[in-house]
């Protein structure tokens, strides 16, 4: 099992290493200054040297992100359950839901700042807006993909609405929910940073702006590195949670 995991990760690892090596060699052999395009080694140096400065910003962004994801999960599941109550509700709400996704969230961010102020809540809402859609759609699709015969079986057993939800629909939709959640969490950190870009006192979005304004390009890259790291950690966390909750999916 352990060995297999390593073998599975092997190709991706090789590709990553190759890409970074090419990058490193390219910067070192070309005339481009490290000020403009820092090499991976320089970026890592910047990251470790400034780690204690970055950390509070990471904390801030992470708090906004986690509250935002949690809110999106609660509202998303609620929406999916409501959509499932009748095909009429679904036909009415679904198109609005999809249309709403064409609104650029980045354009809403300044409004949220005006309405909710500089503290974390405007950013939390941006994260929620980013995460809400994939979670809702995935969960809703999970509900609608349940075999009609299962629903009928529960009906013939006189199952109540709550029992059908609890014993059939929720567990059936969990795999779909986790697919949606995985997409959502990879967006989530970016969402928080978009919120911070527009106006905040702390957070990775603020830090990256400050760094860019000071032409500290290696620090910008270091922050990008932190961002991807956080997103990946969230993704892995969700995957682990999925494995724990859905042991039957293994086969």
């Amino acid at each position: 099992m352990k060995l297999k995991t390593i073998i599975n990760l092997g190709p991706a690892f090789v590709l990553f290493t190759t890409l970074f090596t090419v990058w490193e060699i390219f910067v070192q052999t070309s005339q481009i200054s490290n000020q403009l395009l820092p090499s991976p080694i320089v970026i890592m140096q910047a990251f470790f040297r400034n780690w204690n400065i970055i950390l509070p910003h990471v904390q801030q962004t992470l708090i906004e992100t986690l509250i935002g994801i949690f809110t999106a999960i609660v509202i998303g599941i609620t929406t999916a359950v409501l959509l499932d109550t009748s095909s009429w509700v679904k036909r009415a709400v679904y198109p609005i839901l999809v249309t709403s996704q064409t609104i650029p969230i980045i354009a809403l961010a300044p409004l949220l700042l005006i309405w909710l102020g500089f503290d974390i809540w405007s950013k939390v809402v941006v994260v929620t807006l980013f995460c809400y859609f994939p979670i809702t759609i995935a969960m809703s699709d999970g509900f609608s993909r349940i075999d009609k015969e299962f629903i009928n079986l529960f009906k013939t057993m006189n199952a109540s609405y709550i029992d059908t939800m609890r014993l059939l629909k929720f567990p059936s939709a969990l795999p779909a929910f986790f697919s949606g959640l995985k997409i959502a969490v990879t967006y989530s950190i970016t969402g928080a940073m978009v919120g911070e870009y527009v106006g905040a006192e702390k957070g990775l979005g603020v830090f990256i702006q400050t760094a860019a304004n000071a032409y500290a390009i290696s620090l910008v890259f270091a922050t990008i590195f932190v961002t991807t790291l956080l997103s990946m950690l969230l993704f892995i966390l969700v995957s682990i949670l999925e494995k724990m909750l859905l042991p039957w999916k293994e086969k």
């Binding site: 015969e149 299962f150 013939t156 014993l167």
Partner: peptide
Amino acid sequence: LGKSGYMLQKPLLLP
């Protein structure tokens, strides 16, 4: 509904 035991070609066991 609920007056009979109903069984189909698919076993419909909850996985």
